[in-house]
Design a binder for these strands. Structure first.
Length: 112
RNA sequence: CGGGUAAGACAGGCAAUCGCGCAGCGCAUUCGGCGCUGUGAGGAAAGUCCGGGCUCCGCAGGGCGAGGAUGCCGGAUAACGUCCGGCGUAGGUAACUAUAGGGAAAGUGCAACAGAAACAUACCGCCGCAUUUGCGGUAAGGGUGAAAUCGUGAGGUAAGAGCUCACGGGGAUGUAUGGUAACAUAUGUCUCGUGUAAACCCCAUCCGGAGCAAGACCAGAAAGGGCGUACGGCUUUGGCCGGGCAGUUGCCCGCUGCCGCCCGGAAGGUAGGUCGCUGGAGCAUGCCGGCAACGGUAUGUCGAGAUAGAUGAUUGUCAGAUACAGAACCCGGCUUAUGUCUUGCCCGGGUC
RNA sequence: GCUCGAUUGGUCAAGUGGUCAAGACGCAGCCCUCUCACGGCUGAAUCAGGGGUUCGACUCCCCUAUCGAGUA
């Protein structure tokens, strides 16, 4: 993942939370918004509710891996924020992947 | 075999596919990359409870305070509240464990309730004299309490009392022996005056403050102008004296800097990059000294450096891969969480 | 990351080491009333958890847990 594809600025986050849409799913919550860029930008978050730093790190890695494996299915030009819920603890990669794809489908950010 | 106790080790390995951070080399280039090689979290990385390094601030210097920490002895260490070896005390049948363990005879405070009385006293009682009530002596016995004039026996006495004696116990102090010392043992003299210092305090020792979001550099950045002589006085307009404010950790001395009003307009958004950033009280092995902590020496070796934050996913295999858990400037400890295994020792039972 | 603070009935909270820990709101029960409200009475706290000092701990000391604040 290239550096410019990582969401970093506080303003961007505020804009997505305010003007974007959200899709809650079993293990994650997805925020998304069109960004008028030729590529997509992403962020993977896990709050302290998820657990200690080990659990938060693992949640983010599972989400990243799931996104990476299915990156070609997503449409370009969106800002995406994936937020882990505390139900993600102890779940396997496949479960997270399924949940993430489900959320993307319901948000209509996947192609075809 | 069961129970206990102490010490130590490891924290998954290998293979396949996909993927990530950093460094080096090469290729492409121009703002993005591609390939190869190497390397890539812990025993607690955690809590942030102590001690250092490092950075900035303060510091001519002196005096007076205030606050905090530690507290048996000796040693180790850069240092420590840590560690090692001892001593005393307490617990345990034992192996062993715990120990903030100086001073209550410098002073102050507190000790609820109960009890007559809580640090200087006399309720019941006992005895003597008066004799209905009182006065005096006494601390054996009763009773209260966490704690009440050392315990037992004898002498003694009106009754009693370390008042005297014997044995025993505690404290202070002297001497001898052993030990570097704490202390132990023996003995002489005096003594029997509650506890509390994780209450104030006294004594001894140590401590400047903040913390890598410290701090430095780059880019960027507004610097200034006017009125006017404007804290007061003097004045040769350079300054001097006084005053005020700020800094110098609280105060004093001393030292340093500054001093009125108005206008203009920029930055300003918690926003960027680079450094600090990892070779160090480093790690491994051997030898020497030391009971040990540890120290010395020789050889070898370089083992993360991210910046929204890099170690993951899917399988196979090994008897099994399971717990607690993620570096964020770096070290030495402490404390807490936690899976498996090994060894020594102690107690109990059984068999030979 | 670093530096601090707090925790006492359901909620807000007082509390100098000393009797079963004040008070307010709320809750439950009873009384009052024809009924409700008001009013009156009563009840409910291992003082966040564990260990230590002390005769005795909400209070003093140490460790742990949870919650909160500040810091560019």
């Amino acid at each position: 993942m290239r550096k410019k594809e990582i969401l970093r600025k506080k303003d961007d986050f505020q804009a997505i939370y305010k003007a974007g849409k959200s899709v809650p799913e079993r293990y994650i919550v997805l925020f998304y918004r069109k960004n008028d860029l030729p590529y997509s930008r992403t962020a993977f978050l896990a709050s302290k509710k998820v657990g200690n730093s080990i659990q938060r790190n693992r949640a983010k890695r599972l989400m990243k891996e799931s996104y990476r494996l299915n990156a070609e299915k997503f449409l370009e030009g969106y800002d995406l924020i994936f937020i882990a819920r505390n139900t993600i603890n102890g779940k396997k990669q496949k479960d997270v992947e399924k949940s993430l794809l489900n959320a993307a489908k319901r948000g209509k950010v996947t192609g075809r």
